Simulated assay, not measured.
Amino acid sequence: MYKLTARAHHLAVPHRHQAMAAETSLEFGEHGHLAVPDPEFAPFIDFIDSLPQRSKTDMGLRRKQFEDGLITISKQNYGVGLPKESEYIVKDEEIDVAGSPAGKIRVRTLVPASSEEGKTYPLYVWFHGGGWTTGNVDMDDYQLRQLCVELQLSIVNVEYRLAPEHPTPIIQDDCYAGIKWAVENQVLLSADVKKGFLIGGLSAGGHLTAVLAHRARDDPWFEGRPITGQILQIPALCHPEAVPDEHKSSLFSFKQNEFATGLPAADVHWLYKQLGGSPTSPDVSPFLHPVHAGLPPAVLQICGLDPLRDEALLYGKILKKEGVKTRVHTYPGVPHGFNYGFPNISAAKRWEREYREGLRWILEGAPQA
């Protein structure tokens, strides 16, 4: 699932030398301490170090490795808490996407089961992670089934076409089509966007959420039915080659976590290359959108041992500065996507709790955080 090189033990802060790590972290700015390994996670590093990296030359093999690894682990870990099948309805739908090239994508819908005729629920549209190159609706399927029942949400899980075969803007357009399809099919989904209309995603899915929150804000199609909240989990927000000069001095996590477990900095560069598009385009780097005011309330969840850490923390500050109601949660000493493989450590339990609290906060009208 994760790969951590021997060199990483020194640059991503060695877990066997906590005091030294804390001191070293000072050179990486005000958030450097967040890279000191979590004591509960640190014992797993040697095991993670022994796992093979996913292929970068054979995309078919890479996707199979992802499915056999992370997706299988996710289902094993989250399957323990699955609600009863009688408590929700799950269906796969195929929808058309216009554009160049046109195509079809799959969405998985989850609707709470109710004996009350005509009962409706808030709508939540989800985009999976996987670095734009891997992943599918199975990745977060079990987590979303839990949320469907626990929070009584109608959920649409979008399986967009993948890069590099379908680069920018195809991926973004697929996800946008998924959002519009969900709105147009509220009756089918027993949904009512007036009760809440949220979008969210993890990693690449967090990136897509940020991109589409801007697009929907500026699209008259959503007039009278605006998105009311966004969930940004460990999001990629700014291409590393497009960081504005004024922010370069405050973004240290790419260097500090250069060899971090799960997502080393070199992988981020490689994944952006697969995504395609101009690094400075807001479709690639939503951080660079000229205006963030007017976006829906946002919840950010950010890991300390992640090269994407500091851009997400800065994005949270910018959103607040521009008047967007925003909650920011950090998870010190754990890497990108840690919750899939280590759901029983304290940080993962807090991740799940704060995820649910963030959804409720938005559904309650996002009172000022």
Rank of each mutant, 00 (worst) to 15 (best):
P335L: 12
F44N: 10
T120G: 04
E258R: 09
A260Y: 03
H15G: 14
D245I: 01
E117T: 13
L144K: 05
G135E: 03
R108N: 08
A6T: 14
Y331E: 08
I179T: 02
G60P: 02
P307N: 10
H269R: 11
W270G: 03
L110V: 07
G200P: 04
D173E: 15
E241S: 13
V268D: 06
H214G: 11
D68S: 15
A102N: 03
K255A: 12
C303Y: 02
I170G: 02
G60I: 14
N136V: 02
E357A: 12
N157M: 01
D138N: 14
L202W: 00
G81E: 12
D92W: 03
D173Q: 15
A293K: 14
F28C: 02
A22Q: 11
R63A: 04
S253H: 09
G316C: 00
H15Y: 11
D192T: 09
V90C: 11
G224Q: 08
R353C: 07
K320R: 10
A6F: 10
N339K: 08
R215K: 15
R309S: 04
H128P: 04
G69F: 05
A265S: 15
L251T: 09
E87R: 09
G118V: 03
F342M: 14
Q256M: 12
V90N: 01
F41N: 00
I95F: 11
E354H: 13
V299F: 10
S50A: 14
Q233W: 01
H329R: 05
P235T: 05
D306I: 02
G79L: 10
R54S: 14
A6W: 13
